[in-house]
Design a protein around this nucleic acid. Structure first.
Lengths: 264, 264
DNA sequence: TAGTAAGGTTCATTATTTGAACCAATTATT
DNA sequence: AATAATTGGTTCAAATAATGAACCTTACTA
C-alpha cells in the first residue's frame, strides 16, 4: 500500500456517525503510527481535503471535496441522469429504489428515492458505503463488475452484519454464480435486519458493471411482491441508465438474459 | 512538496473546461515525470478519486468524491446553511451573490444565487476555483484569513487575468491594508472584464475568515448602486452565516467596523 | 500539584519514490 | 503500405522521502 493510498484511506473513516476524528482516534482505528498519521493529516489539511476544528483539534472532511464533486457532476452529470430514472422507477413501484456506484472496496450510494406507499419504510443512509459481500447491490457488483473486484473481496476479511450475512468465500462464489445465471441478486436481511433487496447492474462504456440499481423493502412486504415483474422493471431502468451514460448492457449478458425468465 | 500533495494536486487540473485529462496532458500541465504521474494516477484510480475512461484511456474525477462530499454535507451542512442566507440576500438585493470558501491556494465556490432583475447578467461558474489576488473574495480572504495565506500568495507567481489584475506584491499588500481598514473589498474588472464585485468575510469557530460572501454585478451597473448600503447588507448576512456556523465575527474586527462608516 | 491523555515533533534508519530509458499500441503522415 | 510520431505504460538502480520510537507540550482532571 503506497503513501497516497494510506493517506486517502484516512478519509474513509468519516461517516455520518463519525464526522470528526482526532489523531489518537485515527491511531486506534488504523493501527498505524501516530507520527505517520499526523503527517498525512497535515498534508490532507493543506490540500483542503480535511479541516481541523480549531476548538477540538479534531479533523473533519474539507471543502475541496465539495468543489471537486461539483466539477465532476457539472461535466459528467451522472447523479442527475441516474436520479431521474431512479425517481421514476421508485414512483411507479411505490418502493424505495437506490443507485450505487462501484468504487474500490465498496458501493458508494449515488442517489435514492422513496416513492413508498407502505406503512413501514426502509431507512437509507446516502452517505455511507455499502459492503460488497453483504448486500444485493454488492453481490451484483461482484458478479458483473471487474473480475479483480471479486478476487480482492474474497481474499479479505469479511464482516458479519447479521445472522444472514455470508462471509464464507465459497458461498460468496456460489451467490455470484447464481447472480450471473439469473441476471439479478435478491438478498434477505444480509446487511440489515428486516430489509430485503433486489439489485441489477448498469453499465457505462466498459463491459463491466459501473453501478447497481436496487429496490429495498421491509422483509415482511417482500413476499407479497412479484419478483419477476420487479426484476423486469429494474432491468428496464438499467437499460435506460446505461444508454443515458453513453454505454450499453453488454451483448453476451443481454442475450443470456433474454433467454432467462427475467425478460420473458 | 510531499507525495500526497503532488498526487492530490493532479485533481486540481480538472475543471468544467477540462473534464478529461490524459497521461501526456498531465505531463505537459505539471512538468513532472510521466512515470511518477502514472503511478499517482493509478493510485488515485484505485481509491476512486479518479476514473479512467475505458475508451479514450483519459482520466476523469471519480465517484468517491461524490460520496465524501455527501458525508461532509450530511454531518456539517454548510452549503445548506449558507445557501439559505445567500439566496435571501440575493433576492432582496436583486443581484447575483455568491459564497466561497478558503481552501489552500484559492477560493472554492460553495453556492450562488442570481436574484437578478437587470437585463445583463454575470455568469458564475460554480465549479472553478477563484484566484486569491484577482477577486474581491480573494483579497478579502487574504485580509481576514490566516496570515500564512497572504504570505504564501505574495511569494508565488500571480497570473494577470485582465488589465486591472494586480500582480505586484506591494500593491497586494496595499489592497489588503485597505480591506482591513474598510472592512470590505471592492473590485473592478480585476478577474473578468465588465464584472465588479464587493466582498466581506464570514467566520466559523476560528478567528480567521472561513469564507466570503460576494456580490457580483456588471460594471456598468455598479456606479448606480449604493456602496454603503450593500456593504451593510453583506455584513448582516455575514453575521447571520457566522452565527449559524457556530462562530462569530471576531470582536476586534466587529469593534473596528462599528466605528467605520460601514455599519453606521 | 501530580498524573494522564491528547496533539504534536525529532532524527537516524529504512523503505519507497523517482525518472531516464525502454516497450507496445495506436494514430498521423508520406 | 510503410514510416514516423504520439500516447499509454513499465523497469530498475539511484536518490529521496517516508517512517516510527522516543520525546516534548498543552490541557484537563483527580
Amino acid at each position: 500500500m503506497g503513501t497516497i493510498t494510506k493517506s486517502l484511506n484516512l478519509l474513509n473513516y468519516f461517516s455520518k456517525e463519525r464526522p470528526e476524528i482526532g489523531l489518537v482516534d485515527f491511531k486506534n482505528l488504523t493501527g498505524q503510527d501516530k507520527a505517520t498519521i499526523h503527517r498525512h493529516l497535515t498534508e490532507l489539511v493543506e490540500n483542503g481535503f480535511l479541516e481541523q476544528n480549531p476548538e477540538t483539534r479534531k479533523y473533519r472532511l474539507g471543502a475541496t471535496l465539495m468543489r471537486l464533486s461539483a466539477v465532476r457532476e457539472s461535466t459528467f452529470p451522472m447523479r442527475k441522469i441516474v436520479t431521474r430514472q431512479v425517481t421514476s422507477l421508485s414512483e411507479s413501484l411505490g418502493e424505495l429504489v437506490h443507485a450505487s456506484l462501484i468504487v474500490s472496496k465498496g458501493m458508494s450510494p449515488l442517489c435514492y428515492h422513496d416513492g413508498g406507499t407502505g406503512g413501514t419504510r426502509v431507512y437509507f443512509n446516502e452517505a455511507d458505503m455499502l459492503p460488497l459481500h453483504a448486500t444485493a447491490s454488492g453481490i451484483t457488483a461482484l458478479a458483473f463488475g471487474h473480475p479483480e473486484l471479486l478476487e480482492k473481496t474474497i481474499n479479505s476479511r469479511l464482516v458479519k452484519y447479521t445472522d444472514n450475512t455470508i462471509t464464507d468465500p465459497e458461498k460468496i462464489n456460489e451467490s455470484v454464480s447464481t447472480a450471473r445465471r439469473n441476471g439479478y441478486v435478491i438478498s434477505d436481511q444480509s446487511f440489515e435486519r428486516e430489509v430485503s433487496s433486489i439489485a441489477v447492474p448498469f453499465f457505462e462504456i466498459s463491459p463491466y458493471a459501473y453501478g447497481t440499481i436496487s429496490l429495498a423493502v421491509p422483509t415482511a412486504r417482500m413476499a407479497r411482491l412479484n419478483e419477476n415483474q420487479l426484476v423486469h422493471s429494474l432491468w428496464a431502468t438499467s437499460r435506460a441508465i446505461s444508454k443515458d451514460l453513453g454505454g450499453d448492457v453488454p451483448e453476451h449478458l443481454s442475450n443470456n438474459l433474454a433467454k432467462s425468465v427475467v425478460l420473458a
